[in-house]
């Protein structure tokens, strides 16, 4: 028996299969880096009374630098958001809007997702088998749509706060009060969710512990797919796409970069959660 691979996506039998495109992997890396930039510079403002707030801001180069980093990362966020929207249009032209918005590999929640949630709880309580997920589980869809909604909401409210004079030409001033609440609380929700629930669902649960690099390397073993996305795997086998999707083993460079970004993100994310807990309890 071969030793258990550190990367969950390398475990299990069979060849590696492509799961994510280079664009998707790149965009996710941009999401990570810009999100950390936004969180690290926004969190001390949200919890300005926290014992660590002033030290963190000083470490980032002061209030001015923090504000600059925050806005720079916001621009990156708008950038990846619109690149992604563009890629959706391209995808829709290739496959048709219908397949993008509905069906087994759509990101839009399906009736099956509701059934999966119920089935999941049945499994939790020992009253049924574990649900079989398709290309995207309801958790991944929630992650995706939460970021989609989050970027839109936080992004728009952030623009309001960035350019209040411009927006006040057609919005009342109390809109900035609302935007402050929405921006901060939605951001708090985003980081709280990502650094606990997303981390658990994707990396830290016993099946995948300690890390799943599929989003970085773009590929996972056939066995991984069979376990995590059995319906998707079944369809791949049935349609004879196994060979089309066959991926070469990951190069050492990509592997090391993925490991570094992955573990660094996990560590930083957990640290940020600790800071939030500290601030809330303070």
């Amino acid at each position: 028996m071969s030793p258990r691979a550190l990367n969950a996506a390398d475990r299990g039998r069979g060849p590696h299969l492509w799961r994510f495109t280079p664009l998707q992997r790149t965009l996710h890396a941009f999401v990570i880096v810009s999100f950390f930039g936004l969180v690290l510079t926004g969190l001390p403002l949200h919890f300005s009374n926290a014992p660590w707030a002033q030290g963190l801001v000083r470490g980032l180069g002061g209030v001015g630098a923090a504000g600059l980093i925050h806005r720079f990362c916001a621009v990156i966020t708008f950038g990846y958001f619109f690149v992604h929207l563009g890629s959706l249009v391209v995808l829709a032209r290739q496959r048709g809007w219908k397949r993008l918005l509905w069906g087994p590999d759509s990101m839009i929640p399906q009736p099956k997702d509701l059934r999966d949630i119920l089935q999941m709880f049945k499994w939790f309580l020992g009253r049924g088998a574990r649900p079989k997920f398709d290309r995207f589980s309801y958790m991944e869809k929630f992650d995706y749509l939460a970021v989609f909604w989050g970027v839109a909401i936080i992004g728009f409210s952030g623009l309001l706060l960035w350019f209040p004079e411009l927006f006040s030409t057609f919005l009342p001033g109390w809109a900035f009060n609302v935007a402050t609440i929405v921006h901060g609380d939605e951001a708090l929700l985003a980081l709280s969710f990502i650094f606990t629930i997303h981390f658990f669902n994707v990396h830290l649960r016993p099946e995948k512990f300690p890390i799943d690099l599929v989003i970085f390397t773009g590929r996972a073993t056939s066995g991984y797919m069979e376990e995590e996305h059995p319906l998707e795997h079944e369809r791949i086998v049935q349609t004879g796409s196994l060979e089309n999707l066959a991926a070469p083993p990951v190069s050492r460079t990509v592997y090391l970069w993925s490991m570094t970004l992955g573990f660094a993100s996990l560590a930083l994310g957990v640290t940020i959660i600790a800071l939030v807990v500290w601030a809330v309890l303070h």
Partner: peptide, 11 residues
């Protein structure tokens, strides 16, 4: 500088 009647409705 560009504060107007809308702007000052900020609380």
């Amino acid at each position: 500088q560009a504060a107007n009647a809308n702007f000052v409705q900020y609380r």
